[in-house]
Amino acid sequence: MNYELPMINSNNETPQMDLTNNISKDTDVKIWFKAARVEAFPENGGACVRYKDLQIAVFNFTRRNEWYACQNMCPHKMQMVLSRGMIGSHQGEPKIACPFHKRTFSLKTGECLNTDECAITVYPVRIENGYVHIGLTA
């Protein structure tokens, strides 16, 4: 099994995301959560990881050798599904399309690219020693 304990696990609360600013910069990161081995993720696709009660969608852009992460919940109908969506690009900007109604969101800014749907939270991702780490701000 790929299950790994979080690297830092001092408090047992659910991390509170700062929703006023949905892009957390590397410098704001308080915890680098060690999620799973790189091979556990499909190529050019996504999977969902769990950190306590938080569901995070992680995407492996194999073609560009880039990784992105965002909340798993689609803000349109509050469904825990973004990890099952299709990844792609819009004029170079990496994006994710919700499998339900194809709202698309930038994975760089979290912004919704096709309607006024509210933005999603995105998280920085780091690969170290073959493991995917997700930067959390709390």
Partner: peptide, 8 residues
């Protein structure tokens, strides 16, 4: 590019 939810 990287494709999208239309062409895939």
């Amino acid at each position: 590019g990287d494709g999208c939810e239309i062409c895939k």
